[in-house]
Write a protein that binds this DNA or RNA. Structure first.
Length: 469
RNA sequence: GGCGAUGUGGCCGAGUGGCUAAGGCAGCGGUCUGCAAAACCGUUUAUCAGCGGUUCGAAUCCGCUCGUCGCCUCCA
């Protein structure tokens, strides 16, 4: 199956052709670690994870690198205010970030390079850009990239250089640039930076924000990579600048495919603390939501559409997820003998083919899931009629386990045999005896007792089944 | 101010020229049950922000209006 997806550079859905199949080089912009990630940030990381998992599902071998921005204005300010070292300040947030994405079943990247540990690589690129006379040193000792001297500037965001200059906001503190839209590659030290600086061949200071992604992408993945992904708000200036720095210094194309994830809104607005619609994953977990329900909410919506987050939508996602678990449990209890059923085979094959087609066409998870739910409904009817053979139920379960490599919704957990404490087993038996004897007072007592322990009983025609609340 | 995106049933959201506008959640009805619950089945609610236009035909293309969102120097 051929994979295709929307490339921001071409603005079309393009067939994916990697440089050296089956290997795929994949770079994503990571967090700036001065705070906890919010659920808008996390949406991007989940979309990237889904993207990677789909590529792997289709047979590619993905080498994923995600940078960690640990040198930046806000970080420096906070560090100095709290009188901490850079690492001392950022490490807890890096740890929290990795915990957050792990709880969302985001696969770890192969490398998480930090800006602060790649100063040499950054300086080398700046030196190269100076040698090629594309970068210049300002009077303050900072280095800037001249967009005038890079003819392709603006090709990703489709901005015109003339407009950029005309539309740029007035900058009061950066007189040293030749043009307002030139951006900093290296920021010379000033008092505001305290003891956070590096002594290098190009002077005392720190890297500009855009440099790290160019340096790390080139170092870990090569001068030209297959895919670079991130949030839409990074298209300009961040990704545009990455292209400029990288291509101007190597003379080669930087990235073949650019993929961007849309924003998350909260209650129809941009998230902000003052509106009370600002959430971190930790906030939601405190409210009793499972990170996997949030993951479901993310992947059930197309990555290029804005997603309107509400607690009601998250409730809905959690309910749907429980429905999936219930369905799998029900399948696992099917014990019928094999009977020939051409209808099932056709239904199942069609659902699988549709699912593949949808995920491989610009990662259309909403439609892929839609076809899965239609199949579930058919299979439930077959189970209602007692005409789904065990062998087929098992093959459906196997399939769900297989696609969970993409969905990562812990579907396997639904099938794990819960260990029933003996006393619960006994109580269930006692209740059944009481019911037979029509001692409903006692049977209801037991039901309430178990309910208080978080056990829900289901009296089905096939017998009593229980599940945890 | 400049550029761009978007507005689909109670909610979340697919669908970008043509079968009866996916799917999920909620609601309602039913099956099951001693009664419930859970589970499952069925199902009500949309002509697609408003107005105008193009077309044999539009949610889907064009124009205007209104709302929301994003980018325009470091925010996923």
């Amino acid at each position: 199956m051929n994979v295709s997806f929307y490339n921001t550079m071409t603005r079309t859905v393009d067939p994916f052709v990697p440089l050296a199949a089956p290997k795929v080089t994949f770079y994503t912009c990571g967090p700036t670690v001065y705070n906890y990630a919010h659920i808008g940030n996390l949406r991007s990381y989940c979309a990237e994870d889904l993207f990677r998992r789909i590529l792997e599902y289709s047979g590619y071998d993905v080498l994923h690198v995600m940078n960690i921005t640990d040198v930046e204005d806000k970080i420096i300010k906070a560090c100095l205010a709290e009188k901490m070292t850079l690492n001392g300040f950022t490490e807890p947030y890096i740890k929290a970030f990795k915990e957050d994405i792990a709880s969302l079943n985001v696969k770890p990247a192969a490398f998480y390079p930090k800006a602060s540990e790649h100063i040499n690589e950054i300086v080398d690129i700046i030196k190269e850009l100076c040698k090629r006379e594309i970068a210049y040193k300002g009077d303050d000792g900072s280095y800037y990239f001249s967009i005038e001297r890079f003819s392709d500037y603006g090709k990703l965001a489709r901005l015109d250089k003339q407009d950029l200059r005309a539309g740029a906001r007035i900058c009061h503190d950066e007189y040293d640039k030749e043009h307002l839209s030139d951006f900093a590659l290296w920021k010379a030290w000033d008092e505001g930076d305290g003891d956070i600086f590096w002594e290098t061949e190009i002077g005392k200071g720190r890297p500009g924000w855009h440099m790290e992604c160019s340096a790390m992408s080139i170092k870990y993945l090569g001068e030209t990579i297959d895919i670079h992904m991130g949030g839409v708000d990074n298209i300009f200036p961040h990704h545009e600048n990455e292209i400029a720095q990288s291509e101007a210094s190597t003379g080669k194309k930087f990235v073949n495919y650019w993929v961007h994830c849309e924003h998350l809104l909260s209650d129809g607005r941009k998230m902000s603390k003052s509106l009370g619609n600002f959430f971190t994953l930790r906030d939601l977990v405190e409210k009793g939501y499972s990170p996997i329900a949030l993951r479901y909410l993310y992947i059930a919506n197309h990555y290029r559409s804005k997603l309107n987050f509400t607690l009601k939508a998250l409730d809905s996602a959690a309910n749907t997820l429980n429905g999936l678990y219930d369905f799998l449990k029900r399948l696992s209890r099917v014990k019928n003998e094999l009977i020939e059923d051409a209808e099932f085979a056709e239904l199942f094959a069609r659902a699988k083919a549709t699912f593949d087609e949808k995920i491989y066409t610009d990662m259309n998870m909403p439609q892929a899931l839609s076809c899965i739910f239609s199949m579930i409904s058919h299979l439930n009817i077959m189970m209602d009629k007692n005409c789904l053979p065990q062998q087929q139920a098992v093959s459906v379960i196997d399939y769900f386990m297989k696609i969970d490599a993409i969905l990562a919704l812990n579907l396997g957990q639904a099938l794990e045999d819960d260990i029933v404490p003996e006393d619960i087993e006994k109580l269930i038996e006692e209740r059944q005896s009481a019911r037979k004897a029509k001692d409903f007072k006692r049977s209801d007592e037991i039901r309430d007792l178990l309910s208080a322990r978080g056990i829900i009983l289901q009296d089905t025609p096939q017998g009593v089944v229980w599940k945890k609340m």
